[in-house]
Nucleic acid binder design. Structure first.
Length: 266
DNA sequence: AATGGGACCTGCGCGC
DNA sequence: TGCGCGCAGGTCCCAT
């Protein structure tokens, strides 16, 4: 699922392809993914505009446009942006000057595309927690002390911290040797420091690898990201921990899967 | 206020 | 072999 490292990878891939390009035509094959305004106004509104800048906020991709508006794309679970496009899988096809086609694919139709006047004022954006890379350990510790939730669902909470999803929450907690069930405010100073450092380290390494290809995620070129081979716990239930050889467990937490090593993570 | 579960979707893998 | 069910998870929405 596209989390921060995957969306950042897509952002960087796209910068090389469509920065400065002008939309000449939009083909909406699945109107449901266009959340704002109507599919018709969305298409009409984009034609003639250039992509001035590409940003990422949490897991949201933002295309700043030449007239001051913005195209926002949330890939949710199965969204993809693929170039060159023009495939039959495409839910929306973006045509640019010079014949370039960018496809938005989305098997499960959870994705959300919007054309808005100001992306900063979207409710979703306003409620997002801080970017991990903008945090200091000290601020992170203060945030953790204000909550009493289990640490795993807290890391997944986009209002608490933005960009972390189910895969990286598992990998980060494993590397920090912290049990996902621990209440955030019971974490000791040194555990918070390790958690903070591992959060940054895992996300940075995952970006360097082009993200984790599990299920549908691919880079804009269609290639896989390479970080999945660094996964220590995600999807490894019943298999031995690489450190202690005890079996990785899968439990359900907040109605989604949590993978961890009960021996290494305390 | 904070937490939990269901809804939104589709394809896949499993068990019968 | 084939069918139906559960599961996958980002976010929203509602109930508790």
């Amino acid at each position: 699922m596209p989390e921060l490292p995957e969306v950042e990878t897509i952002k960087r891939d796209l910068e090389k392809i469509i920065l400065g390009e002008k939309f000449v035509k939009i083909c909406v094959h699945q109107a449901g993914v266009i959340r704002q305004p109507s599919a018709k106004l969305f298409s009409q509104g984009l034609v003639g505009l250039r992509v001035k800048n590409i940003l990422r906020r949490g897991k949201l991709l933002i295309f700043e446009l030449s007239n001051g508006q913005a195209l926002t794309i949330h890939l949710k679970m199965t969204g993809q942006l693929v170039y060159p496009g023009g495939s039959s899988k495409s839910r929306v096809a973006f045509y640019f000057t010079g014949g370039k086609i960018l496809d938005f694919n989305d098997q499960r139709l959870f994705g959300e595309l919007r054309l808005v006047d100001r992306w900063e004022t979207l409710k979703f954006v306003q409620e997002l927690g801080p970017e991990p890379f903008d945090l200091t350990c000290r601020v992170f510790q203060d945030m953790l002390l204000k909550k009493k939730t289990a640490i795993k669902p807290l890391l997944l909470d986009q209002k608490f911290i933005s960009g972390i999803g189910n895969i990286y929450a598992a990998e980060i907690l494993y590397r920090a040797k912290i049990n996902p069930l621990r209440s955030s405010k019971t974490l000791l100073q040194n555990e918070v420091e390790t958690l903070f450092c591992q959060t940054i380290a895992v996300l940075k390494m995952a970006i360097k690898c082009g993200g984790s290809s599990v299920d549908d995620y691919v880079r804009v070129s269609g290639e896989n990201g390479d970080y999945a081979r660094h996964h220590q716990v995600y999807g490894r239930q019943g298999r031995p921990c690489f450190v202690c050889k005890n079996l990785i467990q899968r439990i359900t937490q907040g109605s989604r899967g949590t993978y961890f090593c009960p021996h290494c993570q305390r």
